[in-house]
């Protein structure tokens, strides 16, 4: 038994060294993301609201805090300039609607997740990345927000979920369509997709058995 003691001690030391300290440092960008997350959680946790009301309120938060115009430009990248001004503004609108339709449906899937800001770093062009974790039962989800100062106010211009950028992902999907079929066809596909999605917003009444465990997490 005695021979185990030093080994156990050494192991305990090793483990205490391996424990990573929480990152320090405060930025207004961090505070901005924390505040955004808190606002969203308040809505999600509010039992008094219907799904429609929740979707509406979260849309309001998102519209104030995301710069959809910049996001849309980044998504289309070089193809942006191939669109007429009218097509451009339609794209911004449909892109925004697409996000709210697809993510709005998840509002009833909320299972007491919380958000923790874990770090931040400066990026090129004065952008700032704020790193967060969604804490839940099971693996945490890493979500990074890319922020840019627009008229003196931080705006979210990309969301990177588990190392996958929303902007980059849409960019590659739209690239082929615009190049091969043209901007009109791309807009038509997006409109169609949104119309199909909207008809079952915010909850299509599907049975989701996982919800029964919501209280026990």
């Amino acid at each position: 038994m005695k021979t185990w003691a030093p080994l156990a001690f050494a192991f305990a030391m090793l483990c205490s060294l391996a424990v990573q300290p929480a990152p320090a440092g405060a930025q207004d960008a961090r505070a901005y993301i924390q505040e955004t997350g808190d606002q969203v959680l308040v809505v999600l946790k509010n039992q008094g609201l219907s799904s429609e009301q929740k979707v509406k309120q979260i849309e309001d938060i998102a519209y104030a805090r995301f710069d959809f115009d910049t996001m849309a430009r980044l998504v289309l990248a070089r193809n942006w300039s191939k669109l007429t001004p009218q097509q451009q503004s339609e794209f911004v609108q449909e892109f925004r609607r697409h996000l709210s339709v697809t993510y709005g449906k998840n509002i009833e899937n909320y299972r007491n997740e919380t958000i923790e800001v874990t770090g931040d770093r400066e990026e090129a062009r004065g952008d700032w990345t704020v790193k967060t974790k969604i804490l839940r039962s099971g693996d945490d989800i890493l979500v990074d927000y890319r922020l840019r100062k627009v008229d003196g106010q931080w705006k979210i211009i990309d969301v990177v979920i588990e190392r996958v950028s929303l902007v980059a992902n849409f960019r590659s999907q739209l690239q082929d369509v615009v190049a091969n079929k043209g901007a009109d066809e791309m807009l038509r596909m997006l409109r169609e997709k949104n119309a199909a999605g909207q008809s079952i917003l915010p909850n299509d009444g599907k049975v989701s058995p996982g919800d029964t465990s919501a209280a026990s997490s």
Partner: peptide, 21 residues
């Protein structure tokens, strides 16, 4: 389900996500 619905071309969405991650 969300991932399928959120994409215009799910194949390209998955391909890009895999590469990037």
């Amino acid at each position: 389900d969300t991932a399928r619905e959120a994409s215009l071309d799910f194949y390209i969405a998955v391909r890009t996500a895999y590469f990037e991650r």
